[in-house]
Structure formats: C-alpha cells, structure tokens
Amino acid sequence: MDRDEQRLAQRLVERDEGALADVYARYGRATFGFLLRTLRDRPAAEDVQQQVFLEAWQRATQYDPERGSLFTWLMTIARSRAIDQLRRRVPVPQDPSESPALETPVAPAVDELVEHWHMVELLRRLPHDEAELLRRRFYGGLSQSEIASETGVPLGTVKMRMVSGLRRLRTMMEPEEA
C-alpha cells in the first residue's frame, strides 16, 4: 500500500467527512469497471456501486490495513455485492411451478474478474512509460523490437523498462498475495 493510500485509509477509518469522496475519486472507476463487466447491466452496476461505497463507509472501522490494501478491501466488498446481485437474477423457469432458486455458481467467474481488475489498478499505478510499454506488448501484441521501432525508443531502453515495469508490478502484487 502506498503512502497516499495509507493516509486515505486512515482518514476513512477515522470517518473523516471528505475521505469517502476521495476514496471514490481514486477507486470508483475501478470498482465500477469491475461491476459493469461483471453484471453486464449498467443500471444494476450503478446501484451496486452505490451499495459498495455505502458499505465501505458504514464498515470503515472494520478495515484492517494488515489484511490488505484499501483497494483490495473495496474489491472484496464489490465482489460480494456483485455475487449477491447475480444471484438475485432469478432465472425464469419454463414451467412456472419450478422453483426459481438460482443454483448456477457465479463466484469463480467473478473471482477471475476481480483478479483482472486488480491488475488493472496496479497497472494504473505504474509510471506512464512503463504502463504504456506493457499495454503495447500485452494489448497491442507487439514484440519489444516492434515497440522500439514504432516508438523510436532504443531497444535496450524498451527491455530495461519492460523488466522495470514487471518488477514493479510484482512488488505491488506481493502484499496482496501474502
């Protein structure tokens, strides 16, 4: 957890009145992106987004920085509320006398999306040149040589930034995996 996040978490725990808005400004886009991709329904995602941050405010004193970053905690809440929402989508049986209970497991798919959006948040924290390089490689599908050719950055610099970006991501991932 970086220092800004530590300070923000502390303010939230102390129920600083502006803290929630700052938390929302910092993480609202990531949680909403996750919810939108998970629920595939913008009105539902907007509703759940509000629930997540309301819950974060109401449960702020329960947040324990020893157990993970503030973002991880928010994503844990978002995951739970997203699963709740998915389970409420009662499938309509062909025979109305059937039970509407929803048995389809949704947690594994949601967990995969949580992991993806966690990575998105970590990428957002990288220096721009490293994040852009990783984007060109893993989204654009370019090799390091192609990136060097396309951007005019020397190949040696591309390789150095690549390793630097990967290391930085690894370092950010480690506290969450502990």
């Binding site: 129920r15 600083d16 009145e17 502006g18 803290a19 929630l20 808005a21 700052d22 929302y24 609202g28 886009r29 990531a30 949680t31 909403f32 992106g33 939108l36 907007e46 987004q49 509000q50 941050f53 309301l54 405010w57 993806h116 959006w117 990575m119 998105v120 984007r135 893993f138 989204y139």
Partner: peptide, 20 residues
C-alpha cells in the same frame, strides 16, 4: 481490461459525508 474504464456514476449516499 486494457481499455479505458467507464466513468462511474456520481457518488450518492443519503445522509453520508458532506463531501460525497
């Protein structure tokens, strides 16, 4: 995941912190 995340809705929490 690599594309720009969508703009979230404004935070609307009844009776919650002033800034929000």
């Amino acid at each position: 995941a690599w594309e720009d995340a969508p703009e979230p809705p404004p935070l609307r929490l009844p009776g919650e912190p002033r800034a929000a």
